[in-house]
Design a protein around this nucleic acid. Structure first.
Ligand code: ZN
Ligand code: ZN
Ligand code: ZN
Ligand code: ZN
Lengths: 144, 144
DNA sequence: ATAAACCTTGGAGTAAACTCTAGGGTCAAG
DNA sequence: CTTGACCCTAGAGTTTACTCCAAGGTTTAT
């Protein structure tokens, strides 16, 4: 049995985060002391571990809520239910990676074309590319 | 010379977005008509083009503001100044990609271990991994 | 003269996941 | 009995990039 501060310390998070998770229905302390203090059981602590691990692999709190709701009703759920959540997230992550890789390629192309020296930005290929209709790099910065 | 609606239509954006860019100091119309209407010049339109291209390669509006401030003072700026902004963003993008790839690997590992069938989630390796201290996958779902 | 299609301002709402503040109760030690 | 370390609630603030709303002025066409 832990008070909010103890649990927070154990998992190196803010007590406000714990209250926030409660408000979001992710981790409701299993009892409340007569003085109003939240009391977390070891099962609660285990659940918090699940939440933090899920967060660490990219799940949103909303995803985690779904995962936890499956978890508590394991017996009536199928592997399919679980895998769908994971695959859905994986698809989102893949999509985001691709978007970022597009950014990465464009940025790298711009970076590579610029000399990065103390020459005047008047002839900077990066600025020229940004001004060109199609983000085209005409040449490398040479500044004659 | 364009009114706000014309410019917005030309670039397929919302008029509110243009007003927002103005509030943020990114694109201030070069004049205001006597009736209070914003009047954008072709130079303004060109700047909008730069903004949208920069956005399309991953720059935030704040980055773009920096880029535009260099652009207007090109003569007194160096290639270095420009390249720093690009390289900084590139570093951010790279970092984000790495984070997402970590997610991707973990998610794929989980996904691969789960049968995804109609078997009970009681023995689902995904749930087991999330509950295990170290996100370990003990075995593949076989459900005996 | 009146409707449709513009334009203006100021301010609120959205998502996500916290984080902080104010104002006040609780508890153990010295 | 007071100090310090806890705990409580309700609500506001943060970030980014819009998007929408209300209430009203302007223009153009019929
Ligand atoms: Zn150069
Ligand atoms: Zn350059
Ligand atoms: Zn299975
Ligand atoms: Zn499974």
């Amino acid at each position: 049995m832990y008070r909010i501060g103890e649990l927070a310390k154990q998992y190196d998070i803010n007590t406000d985060t714990l209250r926030y998770y409660e408000k979001e229905g992710l981790l409701v302390p299993s009892s409340i002391a007569s003085n109003g203090y939240r009391i977390y059981s070891s099962a609660d602590a285990k659940t918090l571990g699940v939440i933090l691990r899920a967060k660490a692999i990219g799940f949103s709190l909303s995803d985690i809520k779904t995962l936890l709701s499956i978890e508590v009703d394991k017996a009536n759920k199928e592997c399919l239910d679980v895998k769908l959540v994971v695959d859905d997230k994986l698809a989102q992550v893949n999509a985001k990676i691709e978007e970022l890789q597009t950014f990465q390629r464009s940025l790298k192309r711009l970076s590579d074309a610029c000399c990065g020296g103390h020459e005047s930005a008047q002839d900077c290929t990066i600025l020229q590319a940004l001004e060109s209709e199609s983000l085209t790099i005409l040449s490398e910065c040479h500044h004659d």
